[in-house]
């Protein structure tokens, strides 16, 4: 194990973490501000990936596919909130879980009917397929660096928006005390709808960007949803800053742990035991981290003030 390998793994972890952040950012606000348990957030990832892939295939232009898919995911999120979600805010959490679980099934089946059960073929354009030497003799794919950059830009944008703008102040107020915010004459309904659609768009963007790396298929968002729920819990429900830090943390622990733990185990136990224990512990590492955080900080690392 060399230092360059470790550095490369840190880059891999960053990229995974940034992707998770894009998904978790919207979800943490939906859970924190609206107090709404939304399980179908993974479907937004899938919708984004499918929209970008389908348009890219139709127009043969990757950039156009992404540009067109962004408003599509926003509109999907907006309509979803308007048609279904807003009727569920006053229901208890169990109803919300059932209804949004139903939405997962609905979206997966709708995609299967519309695009077929097979994975869609997508790839990024050849102009993005090169490598950058992040260290001598350590080439790193340009496309993955681009994901990191886009993710960081989004994070910066969300941060500036939430902390510096008037609407951002309403969002923060809504996170701390929704009743008081509404009492002050802020239209919480419209605010919620906007947050929901924006959250869907960021999740969709994550889907669009990982589409060319992974297989675009029905149900692709669900594994990411589970991890982003872990991110939200570690970061503190309702905190975008917490979601960012937790997402990077999870990305690093998951990625670096997956590769390094089996290697580490081999230094002090037999190879066959290490081959069994290493991957087992690595797949648990994220959840162990969550448990440890919850023991010391039951409301997460960065709970929003007043919560």
């Amino acid at each position: 194990m060399t230092l360059t390998l470790l550095l490369e793994q840190i880059f891999n972890g960053l990229q995974a973490g940034i992707t998770l952040f894009l998904i978790a950012a919207g979800l943490t606000l939906i859970l924190g501000i609206m107090d709404f348990v939304f399980l179908a957030h993974g479907s937004q990832v899938m919708i984004g990936a499918y929209a970008a892939a389908a348009i890219t295939i139709a127009t043969n232009n990757f950039y156009f596919g992404i540009l067109a898919a962004i408003p599509i995911t926003f509109v999907c999120g907006y309509l979803l909130e308007w048609l279904i979600i807003r009727h569920l805010y006053r229901r208890d959490h169990m109803d919300q879980v059932l209804a949004t679980f139903g939405l997962i099934l609905f979206f997966n089946e709708a995609i299967r009917i519309g695009f077929g059960p097979a994975a869609l073929f997508t790839n990024f354009p050849s102009s993005l397929s090169g490598f950058i030497e992040i260290l001598p003799d350590t080439p790193y794919p340009v496309y993955r660096i681009l994901i990191i950059l886009v993710g960081l830009l989004c994070a910066l944008g969300i941060h500036l928006f939430v902390s510096r703008t008037r609407v951002g102040a309403m969002v923060r107020a809504g996170a701390s005390n929704p009743e008081m915010t509404a009492a002050l004459g802020i239209n919480v309904k419209i605010l919620f709808r906007f947050i929901f659609a924006a959250g869907a768009t960021f999740a969709g963007l994550a889907g669009m960007m990982i589409g060319p790396l992974t297989s675009v298929e029905p149900g692709m968002g669900e594994p990411l949803l589970i991890l982003s729920l872990v991110v939200i819990i570690i970061g503190g429900i309702g905190s975008v800053r917490g979601a960012f830090i937790a997402a990077i943390l999870i990305g690093l622990v998951d990625t670096v742990g997956r590769v390094m733990l089996p290697m580490l185990f081999k230094t002090f136990m037999s190879v066959s035991t290490a081959d069994t224990a290493g991957p087992a512990l690595a797949s648990m590492s994220v959840y162990i981290l969550m448990a440890v955080v919850l023991v010391f900080k039951p409301t997460g690392l960065f709970p929003p003030k007043g919560a």
Partner: peptide
């Protein structure tokens, strides 16, 4: 190397493989 069942991103394993 045993990867996670249902894993979608193998970049970390590929980095280790490259090394």
């Amino acid at each position: 190397v045993y990867t996670k069942l249902g894993q979608t991103d193998f970049q970390a394993e590929l980095s280790a493989l490259r090394a």
